[in-house]
Design a protein around this nucleic acid. Structure first.
Length: 160
DNA sequence: GCCAACGTTGGC
DNA sequence: GCCAACGTTGGC
């Protein structure tokens, strides 16, 4: 099983939007970066996902999700009215793909970017690297667990 | 709103 | 195939 981090601007699609979606499941589409797409190609059903809110305040990992459907054509690329339209994508050669993800948990206290930077186990996390703006990133199992542990710690602290 | 970092495009 | 110009991302 692999672990991933996926970024979304909450004004576009937040973890609450995912939670509210039918069956807590929604397609993750609109990815128009080849490196991010290649990561999505490798996703398997059951893979775990850290849900990250970008371009907002606070910047934070806000919860977790699971991949429930592996890569299939991103139809938004075929829709001329979609902001994600790309004429290079055809039925024969879809170019872009999406996966379906299912809501798993929302952290009681989000783990902010600033907080992640203070966790020694996350020293080498891709997300924290300068200039890193990839919207779909691999995460090591250790890093994934460290984020969950930090989220639990923060949740505990809140009620202390 | 700014701007650094990165990705893409297109002329040559 | 290089690289300058341009567009986008996303933290600050």
């Amino acid at each position: 099983m692999c672990h991933w981090l996926m970024k979304s601007e909450p004004s576009e699609f937040s973890i609450d939007d995912l939670k509210r979606a039918p069956d807590g499941t929604a397609p993750w589409d609109g990815v128009r970066n080849y490196q991010a797409r290649n990561h999505m190609r490798e996703m398997k059903a059951g893979d775990r996902v850290l849900f990250y809110h970008s371009s907002t305040d606070p910047l934070a990992v806000v919860g977790t999700a699971r991949v429930v459907r592996e890569g299939y054509p991103d139809e938004s690329a075929w829709n001329p009215k979609s902001p994600y339209y790309d004429k290079r994508s055809t039925l024969e050669n879809p170019v872009w793909l999406r996966v379906d993800v299912r809501f798993e948990a929302r952290f009681p206290v989000p783990v902010t970017l600033a907080d992640l930077r203070t966790v020694p186990a996350l020293k080498h996390m891709l997300l924290l690297r300068k200039g890193m703006r990839l919207s779909v990133q691999p995460v090591t199992p250790e890093e994934f667990e460290a984020v969950l542990a930090r989220a639990a710690e923060l949740a505990k602290g809140r009620h202390a």
